[in-house]
């Protein structure tokens, strides 16, 4: 029995060896502050996302939309006539008939034209790829053993997607403002309510509208991120998100579903036009932002619940 105890003691001897090995290594106290805890990964994530060829291509497409609208209107009105068949602005996105008078309206038109499809599609691609793309490439397992931390990685991904929403919206707005300034006159503008506001005031409202449009996309971003945690195929996640987007847009047009429609994330999207009223009509704007927050909370929680308990076998 003494032999047994001797061996046991030797076993404990091994403990002290491993303990001293611990002491020799990088001290454990180099835990960084909270800001860098999220900051470094977020910065790197942004850098990585915006260096992807796909991200650049999406932004290029978004930048091209106002250019196409601007040129089309310029050509159509070059004979001196108005926009549209009746010349009265019956068709096309909001504000389109006013662009020839004031280039700033191209910003509103371009946002109204890209918000139903181009912008959310771009967000769907980025959000859908966020986790699934990493899983597909196998890089997810290395991020997690780094260890990025599952909650931290998910928050970083969501923050990056939100940043992309903002950048994408601003790309549309800036491109539209540039094209509008080049092709059309700028100046004081008339609100939907018929009052006159200065160009500076109009520019401020344009920026506010861009921010509201970006915020309108938070629901899609959360939905896309949730879908992204369900699969290991980036393509499948992107396709599902964009497919859901199209389905919702179609359902939102079916009158029989009007009881459900206030809960569709896209239902109040075009309420941003109310910012061009004088005074501003806040009712639907607030409903829109509330709905986006609800989607972000529901699908954000679902994504978190799924991702933090998922077996990573890719």
């Amino acid at each position: 029995m003494s032999q047994v105890e001797a061996n046991a003691a030797q076993g404990r001897g091994a403990v002290s060896i491993s303990g001293s090995a611990a002491g020799r290594d990088q001290p454990q106290t180099t835990r960084t502050r909270r800001t860098t805890f999220y900051g470094t990964l977020f910065r790197n994530e942004l850098l990585t996302t915006f260096r992807r060829w796909r991200t650049i291509a999406l932004l290029a497409v978004l930048a091209a939309v106002p250019i196409l609208i601007g040129i089309a209107i310029k050509i159509e009105t070059s004979d001196g006539g108005g926009v549209g068949p009746g010349g009265g602005g019956g068709g096309g996105p909001a504000f389109i008939s006013q662009i020839t008078n004031n280039g700033l309206f191209l910003v509103f038109t371009a946002l109204a034209a890209t918000l139903p499809f181009f912008l959310p599609m771009a967000i769907g691609v980025v959000a859908g790829d966020a986790i699934a793309g990493e899983a597909n490439a196998g890089t997810l397992r290395y991020l997690l053993v780094a260890p990025a931390g599952r909650t931290r990685l998910l928050l970083t991904k969501y923050a990056t997607t939100m940043t992309f929403c903002l950048v994408a919206t601003l790309v549309v707005a800036v491109s539209a403002l540039t094209v509008g300034a080049v092709l059309f006159p700028l100046g004081d503008l008339t609100t939907i309510s018929g009052t006159q506001i200065s160009f500076a005031d109009g520019l401020g409202r344009a920026l506010l509208i861009a921010l509201v449009v970006a915020a309108s996309l938070t629901g899609v971003a959360a939905l896309g991120l949730f879908v992204s945690t369900l699969t290991t195929s980036g393509i499948a996640a992107m396709a599902t998100t964009v497919g859901l987007l199209i389905t919702i847009q179609i359902l939102d047009q079916i009158p029989q579903l009007h009881a459900l429609q206030p809960y569709f994330f896209s239902h109040y999207w075009l309420s941003f036009a109310d910012l061009m009223r004088d005074p501003v009509y806040w009712d639907e704007l607030v409903k829109n932002l509330g709905l986006q927050a609800l989607y972000a909370a529901v699908f954000g929680s679902a994504a978190w619940a799924r991702f933090t308990t998922k077996d990573i076998s890719s």
């Binding site: 990088q26 180099t30 835990r31 960084t32 860098t36 805890f37 470094t40 990964l41 910065r43 790197n44 990585t48 290395y142 991020l143 780094a146 260890p147 990025a148 931390g149 931290r152 990685l153």
Partner: peptide, 11 residues
């Protein structure tokens, strides 16, 4: 990138 993912790594 992998190093940035490690919160204990000194930037």
């Amino acid at each position: 990138r992998y190093d940035a993912a490690d919160p204990t790594a000194d930037p």
